[in-house]
């Protein structure tokens, strides 16, 4: 170390770190604290008595079990398909020469430029036309791959030495086997990152499920939590409890996968 950090700088860095942490964790912690309060208590009596009644009410009367299962299915289907389809498409784009390659690149960039919000109406009509309205497939299918995911995988594949691929080819492996046995394992950290991004996005998705889902049986958790606000107009604490419950699974998944969240991935993520 060439120079010593002055004391005031160290202290203010830590102070700022604590403030940032409180701002980030505070709202969810506050939500939890109030959800644990018995109904009808004053907000200022926070922490004096705790009860799980609100959680039980949200779970039972808000019937969150079905939406929880739906959200888990949708989230994992979307993450799995995103990784698989993107990795498939990225392989030839990273490693093969073929006609129309540049055209495909341009088309991919175009899909990246159009936000889903712009094409909501035709997307909705297409889903209805396929007979998928009010099914979980309608939530999964349109978002089962993104151009962003394809570019992310392509970058990871391009970093893999060609000699490994060549060796496998000399051993007689076809393209599909090379993709599965050579490319996928070596790009695993990137694939995990893409999976994590897809999981976070799918778990939180509100607008599209709101449009294509109608019946209680098909609701995902964000839609169900939104509906809780009507069910529990007289006991808002049950709504808070439901909101906390829907946060738990994503917290667990994040805790398991957070080691794949490296800053380098975000540098690449934004550059596409």
């Amino acid at each position: 170390m060439i120079e010593r950090r002055p004391a005031w700088l160290g202290i203010s860095t830590w102070a700022l770190a604590v403030v940032l942490a409180i701002v980030s964790i505070g709202p969810a912690a506050w939500l939890l604290a109030i959800a644990l309060q018995p109904p009808g208590t004053d907000l200022r009596e926070i922490g004096l008595s705790a009860t799980f009644d609100n959680f039980a009410a949200a779970w039972r009367d808000g019937s969150l079990a079905g939406p929880l299962v739906n959200s888990v299915v949708v989230t994992f289907a979307r993450a799995l398909l995103n990784v698989l389809i993107a990795a498939l498409a990225a392989y030839p784009l990273a490693r093969m020469r073929f006609p129309a390659r540049n055209l495909i690149f341009v088309l991919l960039l175009c899909t990246m430029m159009v936000p889903e919000q712009v094409v909501l109406v035709p997307m909705f009509r297409i889903v209805v036309g396929m007979g998928l309205y009010d099914t979980l497939a309608a939530v999964v299918l349109p978002f089962s791959v993104t151009a962003f995911g394809i570019f992310l995988c392509r970058q990871a594949f391009m970093a893999i030495p060609a000699s490994l691929e060549e060796a496998a080819r000399i051993d007689g492996a076809g393209p599909l086997r090379i993709w599965w046995h050579v490319m996928l394992p070596l790009a695993a950290p990137t694939l995990a990152t893409l999976g994590l991004f897809s999981i976070i996005g799918a778990w939180s998705d509100l607008l599209w499920p709101l449009i294509v889902l109608q019946s209680r049986d098909a609701m995902t958790l964000p839609v169900a939590v939104n509906a809780l606000q009507g069910t529990f107009a007289t006991n808002p604490r049950a709504v808070y409890a439901g909101a906390v419950l829907s946060l738990v699974p994503i917290l667990v998944i994040f805790a398991l996968l957070q080691r794949f969240m490296k800053p380098e991935m975000f540098g690449g993520a934004v550059k596409g």
């Binding site: 940032l20 942490a21 980030s24 964790i25 709202p27 969810a28 506050w30 939500l31 976070i200 778990w203 939180s204 509100l206 958790l221 964000p222 939590v225 939104n226 606000q229 709504v239 808070y240 909101a243 906390v244 829907s246 946060l247 994503i250 917290l251 994040f254 957070q258 969240m261």
Partner: peptide, 15 residues
């Protein structure tokens, strides 16, 4: 700092 990123917007909104 990543907690808000993974929090579904509906939950963030309620909080």
């Amino acid at each position: 700092l990543f907690l808000p990123v993974i929090t579904p917007t509906i939950v963030a909104g309620v909080a």
